[in-house]
Design a protein around this nucleic acid. Structure first.
Lengths: 223, 223
DNA sequence: TAAATATTTTAGATTTGTCTAAAATTATTT
DNA sequence: AAATAATTTTAGACAAATCTAAAATATTTA
């Protein structure tokens, strides 16, 4: 029946999925960089994935996952995000320390396990970083969020997701006391460096860089 | 620092640990049979484990884990049994369907994860099959008791421990008026469903399921 | 558009864990 | 204690996933 994939294959599938969200054609070097490996190794794996009908790929022409490949990617992402939710909600991990552990847990194969875990956690729709969790059919919940940098002035909004899971970013957010669900508004935008002044509800306002504002996503609240 | 072991190595370490509990010298064929592999493959791995100081091994002379090896084995067994407990208590798996999933989960490396899971589960001392769970230092809980299912017929015994603290189990035990110190004997064992008929001192006898009998531990009394 | 540069693929090696078949060693029988 | 049987190890091969170095192709630039 359904094929089995090695951990190495799964890691390629997942990375290619993420890369093709922004690029319409993924290329070898990007994947090599993301997986911390060499271009030659990537080519070898691409051939294998193509042969397994997971990948649409022609030599030198770039590649994308096939429909079957996307389904597999979403199943892995579902596992990753549900485990992250578990680690934070049930085992009191910080949201900045769950990523590596979830990288291992996402390769546990039992479908029954993950569907039961989903129920046990109360069918969460978003992981601790605000990323949407696919349901057991691979459907992603829709979330109408915008980039913080595009938020209108003095409009209340709620932080709904972060653009990366890097230690550096999470450390900065912890320090600024910004987390998923934090309510804030933008008071001023500075043209000089594109930094913005924000005010978190119940705190005094402060400045954040353009770079930070671009990695934060918010859901406007109708006040 | 502390070495890292592959999944294959961990599986060998675990099997050798289990085998050396009953044999004083483990041999190649036993391991091959237990791991569903060939004797030649076992020999290859033995050399590697010896070189890593995990195994006391001389050609043709049989082998046992070194002290370091036993520590590693106990850490893996700890993970396996805690995950089994989690699956049964939190995700409503049947006690008979957890083994394969736990075989995968036991190789997740994070020590922090497993210690937090331990706390989350309430520091259980026995897994759903009644097997003792090593603590975070690798110490096994002392167990001078036997499983109720192994109690000889018509031999008086005293309930000394329960295999879990789950609400469901405790609810059932309350209803059946079974608590620590209760004196009882087994009158009959039924092969069909492995249920047993027990008689609590001063009460009429009744049947209990295999599952319940396996979560109860008793200390035989010399009457 | 031809040359220079960057990207991608191929060729051939390496490591891990496995295998089969044959040789070496140990254990058992008669 | 010699012959037979069983076990264990060695030798050599293979698949998966990786690597380096070189060749092939595509892209950019002058």
């Amino acid at each position: 029946m359904s094929q089995h994939f090695s951990i190495a294959e799964e890691n390629y599938i997942k990375i290619i999925y993420h890369l093709q969200q922004t690029d319409d054609n993924v290329n070898t070097n990007e994947v090599a960089a993301a997986l911390n490996t060499k271009a030659a190794s990537v080519t070898d794996m691409l051939k294998k994935l193509k042969q397994k009908k997971i990948l649409n790929y022609e030599k030198y022409q770039g590649f994308r996952l096939s429909e079957a490949g996307e389904k597999i990617a979403l199943a892995i992402i579902r596992k990753h995000r549900l485990w992250e939710f578990f680690l934070v909600e049930k085992l009191q991990f910080g949201w900045d320390e769950v990523h590596e552990v979830a990288e291992e847990l996402e390769h546990i194969t039992s479908k029954k396990l993950i569907d039961r875990l989903d129920v046990f956690l109360g069918n969460p729709k978003f992981d601790p970083h605000g990323d949407p969790i696919p349901d057991s059919n691979g459907k992603l919940p829709h979330q109408p969020q915008i980039n913080l940098i595009d938020l209108a002035l003095n409009k209340l909004a709620e932080v709904s997701a972060v653009g990366s899971q890097s230690k550096e970013l999470l450390d900065l957010l912890k320090h600024k006391k910004i987390r998923i669900g934090t309510q804030l508004e933008v008071n001023k935008k500075f043209a000089f460096d594109h930094s913005i002044e924000i005010k978190i509800v119940g705190q005094t306002s402060f400045n954040i860089s353009q770079q930070l504002a671009q990695t934060l996503f918010v859901k406007p609240l109708n006040k």
